[in-house]
Simulated scan of single mutants.
Amino acid sequence: MKVKKMHPDAVLPKYAQQGDSGFDLVAVEDVIIEPGETKLIKTGLAFDIPEGFEIQVRPRSGITLKTKLRVQLGTIDSNYRGEVGVIVDNNAQPLEIRGDYNFLAKLVDGTRLRADTNTGGKTCDRGTYLILKGDRIGQGILAPVARTEFEEVDKLSDSERGVNGYGSTGVKYTKE
Rank of each mutant, 00 (worst) to 15 (best):
K122V: 14
R114P: 12
G134T: 12
I137F: 11
N102M: 07
E96Q: 13
A146S: 13
E96C: 04
G121E: 08
N91K: 11
N91F: 07
G127L: 00
L130H: 04
L113A: 11
I141M: 13
G120F: 08
A146D: 12
K155R: 12
L113H: 03
L130Q: 03
R147S: 10
L132P: 01
T119K: 04
S159N: 06
G110K: 00
G138C: 06
Y129D: 00
R147E: 14
K133I: 09
G120I: 06
L156R: 09
K106Y: 10
Q93N: 09
T128Q: 01
L104F: 12
E152D: 05
N118Y: 13
V145M: 10
V153S: 04
D116I: 13
V145D: 06
E96W: 06
Y129H: 07
L132K: 15
T123R: 14
V153H: 05
T117E: 15
G134E: 08
I141T: 08
Q139D: 08
P144Q: 06
D109H: 10
G120K: 05
L142I: 15
D109K: 05
I137H: 02
L130K: 02
D154E: 13
R114S: 13
E152P: 01
L132S: 13
R126G: 06
Q93P: 03
E149A: 12
R114Y: 11
A115F: 05
E160D: 11
A115P: 02
E96G: 03
E151S: 09
G127D: 01
R161Y: 07
C124R: 00
L95K: 08
L130W: 03
F103Y: 15
Y129S: 01
Y101H: 11
D100F: 12
G121K: 08
V153I: 14
G120C: 07
D109Y: 04
L130D: 02
G121A: 07
R114W: 09
T128P: 00
